[in-house]
Design a protein around this nucleic acid. Sequence first.
DNA 1: TGCTATAGTAAAGGCGGTTGTCTAGCCCAG
DNA 2: CTGGGCTAGACAACCGCCTTTACTATAGCA
Lengths: 159, 159
Amino acid sequence: MPQPSAAEAGEEQIRELREQHIGRLLLQAQRAYNARAISMLHERGHRGLTLAHTALLPHLDLEGTRITTLAERAGMTKQGMGQLVSELERQGYVVRVADPTDARAVLVRFTDAGWQFLRDAHAVKRELEAGYASVLGSERLDALRETLQEIVEGGAGGA
Amino acid sequence: MPQPSAAEAGEEQIRELREQHIGRLLLQAQRAYNARAISMLHERGHRGLTLAHTALLPHLDLEGTRITTLAERAGMTKQGMGQLVSELERQGYVVRVADPTDARAVLVRFTDAGWQFLRDAHAVKRELEAGYASVLGSERLDALRETLQEIVEGGAGGA
DNA sequence: TGCTATAGTAAAGGCGGTTGTCTAGCCCAG
DNA sequence: CTGGGCTAGACAACCGCCTTTACTATAGCA
């Protein structure tokens, strides 16, 4: 009881804040998804790789894709993407090849192991989403996906 | 073109994977929220504090709360919570006081600056959510909150 | 008087990035 | 064909937000 007035004002705030804010919920939901996806990938023999690496996969074109392009598509810095590429390369999932049209650039391309990982990651995704659909119902899952997409793209909330 | 068959199989997978998976969407949405919340807190004079610290606030009772309890409520380890408490303590937002009923335990309590932070965090949350509501509509925002809550609590998807 | 369980701390490490800085190559203007 | 600015990428350092592992101190029962 340091200052009754402060405490009383705070009490209401606490009650309202206890309805978890969206940021926290998003974080926890993401972690739940993440943890299960990783363990499923492990079961399929892909150790040493994490969900972060799946930020790269769906953006890789068949002919190979530049790091800068990948970074843009994934919404992160090119340095960050460069690291992901290095890790995937070390494990043999992708290779860096020179871009014939620009000597500064590098094309990142799947190896055969990379294709296998892609297939497995895809299977994992489908399995997980089927699980979510069975709990939420597929309509609410679709609604979730759409809402998230709007938030991400629209930068909902101004500022 | 290492192996046409592999590439062709992968092409479909890529197309399907490009519909962002839920995990990525959650992550990106969380980051968007996070970044804006932090900058708003900064504007209100709370530098050095991040969104992570708001994982602690709504769980702090008026009389003070044990670290273990806080950790449980926030869904993290007590070591992790201990760190958050230390950081908040260093900045003067909370204090550790001995628990009179158990010499091993510590009660974490707000200081006056802590109450102020709580109020500001609350204001930020309301402002942000108002922004989301204006983009999504309040129904879809509520639906989002509920869906996320189920995912977090239910561990949707089994296994 | 021990045994075990619990509260908390300490240290290290990991994941998933960021910022800042650098070089090598590109390309346009003059 | 040269200089200036721009872009692709690499390298290094760092940060936020935790986790695991290991430990100490107290509690409380048999």
